[in-house]
Simulated assay, not measured.
Amino acid sequence: MFQYTVTSDAAMQNVGAKIGQLVEPGSVIFLKGDLGAGKTTFTKGLATALGIQQYVKSPTFTLIREYTSGRIPLYHMDVYRLENGGGDELGLEEYFNGTGVSVVEWPQFIESEWPADYLQITINKVAADDNQRQLVFKPQGQQYENLVAQLAVAL
């Protein structure tokens, strides 16, 4: 486990960009955090590093937004609305085992669909400063342990 603190949206996007430089086809990233924690802001940075020039916005109402113009496709998912189930109907396994990078907001609602290996990032607001966020990186699997080790050096 690795922890890192950011104090601005730009810093959050920078962390996303650093990870975007390290991900490979088939990477799965789970983003946990309250509303407004910075999950989509993080994803914007990751998309930039992948060379995606489209505007990245929260997929809250569409569930999945696909960005295919970068060096690796990005599948940005917000499964908050699946709180009461239904994730098995989305074909998530195809995304997770595909050639893109899957970024999933609110992954706790589809836990039964999780692959064996992934990177979970929990974003916590720090009460003393409205802009400050603590990111907790929890890798599952060797690929993600290596990614987090590289990230720790890069930050």
Rank of each mutant, 00 (worst) to 15 (best):
T48S: 14
T48F: 00
G33I: 05
P25H: 08
K32G: 10
G51I: 14
T41P: 07
K39N: 09
L22E: 06
Q13W: 08
K32E: 13
I19S: 01
I19L: 15
M12Y: 08
S27C: 11
F30V: 02
F30Q: 03
G20F: 11
G38R: 08
K18W: 03
V23H: 04
S27K: 10
A10I: 03
K44P: 06
D9P: 14
K44C: 09
G38T: 06
Q21K: 15
F30R: 02
F30M: 13
V28P: 07
G51L: 07
V28S: 11
N14S: 10
I19Y: 04
F42K: 05
F42S: 02
G51F: 10
A47Y: 05
T40I: 10
D9F: 03
T48N: 12
S8C: 14
E24I: 14
G36A: 13
V15Q: 10
K39R: 06
G20P: 03
I52T: 03
G36D: 12
L22V: 14
A17N: 08
G20V: 10
L31M: 01
G16R: 02
A47E: 04
G16Y: 02
I19H: 01
G36H: 12
L50W: 07
N14F: 03
V28H: 00
G33H: 10
G26Q: 07
V15P: 00
T41Q: 06
G33Q: 12
E24M: 15
E24R: 15
G16E: 06
T40N: 09
L35K: 08
F30I: 04
A10Y: 00
M12Q: 11
A11Q: 14
L22W: 03
A10N: 12
G38H: 07
A11V: 05
G26P: 01
L50T: 00
T48Y: 09
V15F: 00
P25W: 08
G51P: 10
A49F: 09
V23C: 12
V28M: 14
L22F: 01
G26L: 13
G33F: 05
E24G: 13
G26E: 11
A47H: 04
T40K: 09
Q21V: 13
K39C: 07
A37K: 07
Q21D: 15
G45H: 01
Q21Y: 05
A10D: 13
T41Y: 00
A47K: 02
I29P: 04
V15E: 06
G36Q: 12
S27G: 11
K32M: 11
F30L: 15
G36W: 08
E24Y: 13
D34S: 15
L22H: 06
D34P: 04
L46D: 08
G16C: 06
G38Q: 05
S27P: 10
E24H: 14
M12V: 06
S8Y: 08
A17S: 15
Q13K: 15
L46Y: 05
A47D: 12
K39Q: 10
S8E: 13
